[in-house]
Nucleic acid binder design. Structure first.
Length: 632
DNA sequence: ACTCTAACCTATTCACCTG
DNA sequence: CAGGTGAATAGGTTAGAGT
């Protein structure tokens, strides 16, 4: 923001001539100071008590070449503060910060970089395997939980799967995905600007834990939760979020972690900023729950978990009779869909209200412009599409399996499977992000595949593609999966991060994207390599962004349709028929809503998943192979 | 049209810390 | 000691400025 007293002089100290080179050497200056810093109580006030690391860091600050110094607590506090104020300080701001800290500019820059990355990471989707693991379990549960998930939730645990505990856990903890920026979006803010004070958040998390306890969740459950979440990474909530916001649970690691985790917690509150959180879901004693169905968890639009009498009919819609519920529910579903919103742009999402408004209307009105821009940005989706073989069957089967499960379930499944099964995307990298970047076959390459300019210059592609797309959006999708990825991927976190409604003033993009994402399970598109079509720097983005998303409404609009495309295109008809049925939520029978609410989802499902689509998929695969050949 | 530069991003590595 | 976290690096991309 206001570069705090951008003192040019300050720069002197920090502005290292050759920073990069300096960096390593620079560490030299710090150690002593930083060490001393620890001792400095002065800033301690600023420091979250927990942030103050036991001095060891001072020791650790050996600079000798390899050794890394830990940022002094004091500095850290300052940095955090600055980060909260402005996650992306410009040079002036950076210099100002440098002044206050014993770090040089480069280091500060790196710190911010890492910090942002960290935030993003936390809000990042689970790895496919993780998702799969969760979702399988969850799906079963979902099928049994009418309310909370829109899918029937029969508490009768006939099929109690081990995983159920998890889901239950989630519910119990019922913290909206911490990472869910969308929610935060409602706060208007970048996640950095907490709607709730960090402390509060922490308390919140603590509370949550208590809630869980009070809820009667077995201690084991609670304990497990952390493990689970941890293993899943902080983003663990993601998938769950996909299904229902309630399901997300804060990662204990986050909670427990010292320092900056506060951010994780923020997003929790979609409603955020509203005290609603206090009303966090308190689960009925396990006995009841298990028994069934006296109470169910319902997720409001706000992401607020509510306990609702389960007596309500299986249809989720019916269940929440209250106006609020209805409202929340409608969107709620979408919320699950929209979750991606949040996920998508931690920093700059339009107020949720904006999103919801457009969403809510569907029942009464025409479909919101939702997909206008949005072709599915989830690379997985496309990858999946490219992988014609197994998926169809698997998915189909699964979907059928999930008859009650809903499209969402199928989608999530899709997502989980796609990544794991897709040839394009080697399953698993244990690392959160790895999958994406490595998706491209590295076999031959030592380093990550250079999708390179061809891809990366998405802009170019876009322009080109867009032209083509205009003619035939579908084909566009088939042009080149990789390209598509690039394009699709545009929805990357970074992108969103940069998209502040303020800047482009165009919430739509986010919206559509998130929609798609949501459709995909609310997951943020995995970062695919670096090919970020939209990956723009916030600073730069605005203009271009505007072009792409706003100005080029025609282009993007078309493109946007590409993802869902299928539904719109003639094919839609053919695809649309059966598959839809399969994926439909049983609950969501309300005709009024159906067309609009999960429309995208359905479309998506048709396009991506529908078995009928094999032909297309194959074509895509072929193109893909060709393109790969060309590009390598 | 090209080249440079600055800024960012993602992915990754590696040292340090903690349980 | 394994795993998590943070600092730092490498490789890329993009936009703007300068030539």
């Amino acid at each position: 923001m206001d570069p705090q007293a951008p003192s040019p002089a300050a720069s002197a100290s920090s502005s290292p001539p050759s920073r990069s080179a300096e960096l390593s050497s620079h560490s030299h200056d710090r150690p002593s100071s930083s060490a001393s810093d620890h001792a400095l109580p002065s800033s301690s006030a600023l420091l979250p008590s927990d942030t103050l690391l036991p001095t060891p860091s001072a020791d650790s600050e050996r600079h000798p070449k390899g050794k890394r110094k830990r940022t002094a607590a004091k500095d850290k506090a300052i940095l955090e503060e600055a980060y909260a104020a402005n996650p992306k300080p410009d040079k002036a701001a950076r210099l100002a910060i440098v002044n206050r800290v014993s770090l040089n500019e480069k280091e500060v820059q790196i710190w911010f970089q890492n910090r942002r990355q960290n935030d993003r990471r936390k809000s990042r989707p689970l790895s496919p395997q993780e998702i799969a693991a969760l979702q399988y379990g969850r799906m079963q549960i979902l099928s049994s939980d009418p309310l909370s998930h829109n899918s029937s939730f029969s508490s009768d645990n006939a099929h109690t799967s081990p995983v159920q505990n998890m889901s239950r856990l989630d519910q119990g903890v019922a913290s909206p995905p911490h990472s869910d920026p969308a929610s935060s979006s409602s706060c208007d803010e970048t996640h950095t600007s907490p709607c709730v004070p960090r402390e509060a958040r922490r308390d919140e998390s603590a509370r949550r834990g208590q809630v869980a306890n009070s809820a009667g969740l077995g201690p084991e459950v609670i304990e497990n939760a952390p493990k689970l979440s941890q293993s899943l990474s902080s983003s663990a909530s993601y998938p769950s979020g996909t299904w229902n916001r309630t399901s997300s649970f804060s990662t204990p690691s986050t909670l427990g972690r010292r320092g900056e985790d506060s951010f994780n917690l923020e997003p929790f509150v979609p409603s955020s900023c509203s005290p609603s959180r206090s009303s966090r879901p308190i689960l009925p004693p396990p006995s009841q729950e298990s028994n069934s169905s006296k109470f169910r968890l319902s997720l409001s639009l706000e992401g607020k978990a509510e306990v609702v009498p389960s007596s309500s009919p299986p249809h989720p819609v019916a269940a929440p009779p209250s106006a609020e519920d209805l409202q929340s529910l409608g969107p709620g579903r979408r919320l699950s869909l929209q979750r991606s919103h949040s996920a998508s742009s931690p920093i700059t999402l339009p107020p949720i209200s904006v999103l919801t408004n457009s969403l809510v209307s569907p029942a009464s009105g025409p479909l919101p412009p939702r997909l206008t821009r949005g072709r599915s940005r989830d690379p997985h989706a496309w990858e999946y599409a490219c992988d014609s073989e197994n998926r169809d069957d698997f998915l189909t089967v699964q979907a059928k399996h999930e008859s009650s499960g809903s499209a969402i379930a199928a989608i999530s499944l899709l997502r989980s499977t796609s990544s794991s099964g897709s040839p394009l995307q080697p399953s698993s990298s244990a690392k959160r992000n790895a999958a994406a970047s490595r998706a491209a076959p590295r076999s031959g390459l030592a380093k990550k595949p250079k999708l390179s300019r061809a891809l990366s210059s998405a802009a170019k592609l876009q322009s080109n593609l867009s032209l083509a797309e205009n003619k035939d959006s579908e084909k566009d999708t088939e042009l080149d999966p990789r390209k598509m990825k690039a394009i699709v991927t545009s929805g990357n976190d970074s992108d969103k991060e940069n998209w502040s409604p303020d800047e482009d003033g165009n919430p739509h993009f986010t919206f559509s994207q998130s929609h798609v994402d949501a459709a995909l399970g609310g997951r943020r598109p995995l970062p695919f390599g670096t090919t970020r079509l939209d990956k723009k720097n916030p600073r730069r983005t605005p203009g271009r962004f505007g072009q792409e998303h706003r100005g080029s409404a025609s282009l993007l609009g078309n493109r946007a349709n590409t993802a869902p495309v299928f539904s719109h295109t003639p094919r839609a008809g053919k695809r649309g028929q059966s598959p839809l049925e399969i994926f439909e939520d049983a609950e969501r029978t309300s005709p009024a809503r159906r067309p609009s609410v999960n429309d995208e989802v359905e479309r998506f499902m048709r396009g991506e998943v529908s078995p009928s689509k094999k032909g297309d998929v194959d074509a895509v695969a072929g193109l893909l192979s060709l393109s790969q050949g060309n590009w390598r």
